[in-house]
Structures are given as C-alpha cells and as structure tokens.
C-alpha cells in the first residue's frame, strides 16, 4: 500500500471529456492503508478530484503522486468503482467481470479463475459467479464492481458515490461489507460521498470541500473505534461536527 500526495491541484475549465465542476488549489496527503472520505455540496468538484486522481482527467496545474510516482493517465495501481450500476459489462458473468483486469494484466487461467473467485467470496457473492449482471440486484452489482476493482490488486481503491443509488437498508449492509473488505485488504481508499453518516461510518479522515471555488475547507479526523456503532453518542457527535463543517444547521432551530 502506498501513500498519495495531492499538491495544489486545479482544474477550472471544461475538457473534451465533458463539463467539469472546477477544483482550485487542492492539497491532501493520504497515508498508506488510510480510508479517506471526500464530502461536500454538489458543485464542489469532489468527483472531478476523484477523476483526476483516477487519471481520467488531467489537472491544469499541480500534481498527484502515488508512492512517489507521478500520476499520468490511468494505471493499474488504482481500482475504480463508479456510482452507475451499468459499469459492469453485461456480456460477462460476475466471474468474467472480475477476471477482466487480470486478463489485461496477463494472468493465465487457473490462477485467474482462482483469484476472481476469491474476490467474489470477499464480497459474499461466491454463489453468483456465473450470473450475468442483469440477473443481480443493484447492491450485488456494486459488490461485483468492488471485487472487479480489487481483483488485479491495485494499492488504491477510488470510489465515486458507489452506494448512492441504493435503498437505505442495502446501503447500510454495503457499508458494513466495505468496512470488512477494507479491514481485510488494507487498501488505501478514497471515497467520494455526500452522505454524512456514511463518511463518519467509513472514514479515518474526512476531507470537507466547499463550492465556488471547489477547494478543501477543512479536514476532520474520525477517531472512533471500529466496528463503529452509528447509534452511539460519539458517532452522532461526529456527525454533528461534520455537518457543522458543511454549514448545516444541526440544532433543528429556525434560522
């Protein structure tokens, strides 16, 4: 696992790849095996930042390095999970999807199959190896996507609101599962979300961003012991503090 250094990264114009929510002078240091959540209002550029780290977008200024190596374009040191369920290849089974990165890496078959099955076991889908994505629920599809991003053993896992399109109950299950997976694999995770409870449940540190300009407002450390209890007083206090950073009124009184 390798540390990530983000230095003075800015991107404020639209790229040929599409319209971009700008980010200005973002600097973050992330330790190896750290779980970092990026939260902020819509328009703060949190997804843009993740796409820059993933290498889908090039920053206008500044630079990012992973384990001391500067990032230029996407690379197999990073695994990416998107919000959209459609990210899986519909023409491949769960196992085929998870095998894809290994195929690209040139891992031959008995070994490839073994690793892919192992990854599916990690996300508790060992019974669905031969199912096509359209036969799986949204939560299961996102689990396949996580297994797929982990299969070729990147040191960093980048996640862009992966559970935002799921119902509340499934989302809770998925967060527990992701916490377990992280505990087992010790990947460095950068996780974009707009869900405060989710950030407090998952993160070692939460990076709070503000919009106009899209930049880092503050960084909050979450020191709660794991596994975390979302109903504990300490958890709710953290949540309040984070909401305060985000500028939400937390005492329920009128403005």
């Amino acid at each position: 696992m390798q540390p990530i250094a983000i230095r003075d990264v800015s991107l404020n114009y639209d790229t040929p790849g599409g319209k971009v929510q700008g980010v200005t002078n973002v600097s973050i240091d992330i330790d190896a095996s750290e779980f970092v959540c990026i939260v902020g209002p819509s328009g703060c550029g949190k997804s843009t930042l993740l796409n820059i780290i993933a290498g889908f977008l090039a920053p206008a200024t500044g630079q990012i390095s992973i384990g001391g190596k500067p990032v230029t374009g996407h690379g197999m040191d990073r695994g990416v999970v998107f919000q959209d369920f459609a990210q899986l290849f519909p023409w491949r089974t769960a196992l085929g999807n998870v095998s894809f990165g290994l195929e690209m890496k040139g891992v031959a078959n008995p070994e490839r199959d073994r690793i892919a099955r192992e990854q599916l076991r990690l996300v508790k889908l060992e019974k669905f190896t031969d199912s096509f994505p359209h036969h799986l629920s949204g939560g299961m599809q996102q689990r396949v996507a996580i297994a797929r991003a982990l299969a070729y053993n990147p040191s960093v896992l980048l996640m862009d609101e992966p559970f935002a399109a799921l119902d509340a109950m499934t989302r809770d299950d998925m967060q527990r599962l992701l916490a377990d997976v992280w505990k087992e694999t010790r990947k460095t995770v950068i996780y974009v979300t707009h869900n405060v409870a989710e950030a407090v449940y998952l993160a070692d540190r939460v990076v709070v961003m503000s919009a106009h300009p899209g930049t880092v407002k503050t960084v909050m450390k979450i020191d709660l012991p794991r596994p975390r209890d979302p109903l504990s007083v300490e958890f709710l206090d953290c949540q309040k503090e984070l909401m305060g950073h985000l500028g939400h009124n937390t005492n329920g009184a009128a403005h």
Binding site: V80, F82, Q87, F89, M104, Y152
Partner: peptide
C-alpha cells in the same frame, strides 16, 4: 456506454482489448 470504456481503461485495457472485449 462510455462508462464501459472508462472501467476497462482503468483496468489496464489497451486499444486492442478495448476493441475486441
């Protein structure tokens, strides 16, 4: 779907694999 190309690219697919797979 562009997200398939992105996902495949992130997993290290070159032009040739992108085309056939």
């Amino acid at each position: 779907n562009p997200i398939w190309l992105r996902a495949a690219g992130a997993m290290g697919a070159d032009e040739n694999s992108l085309f056939w797979k």
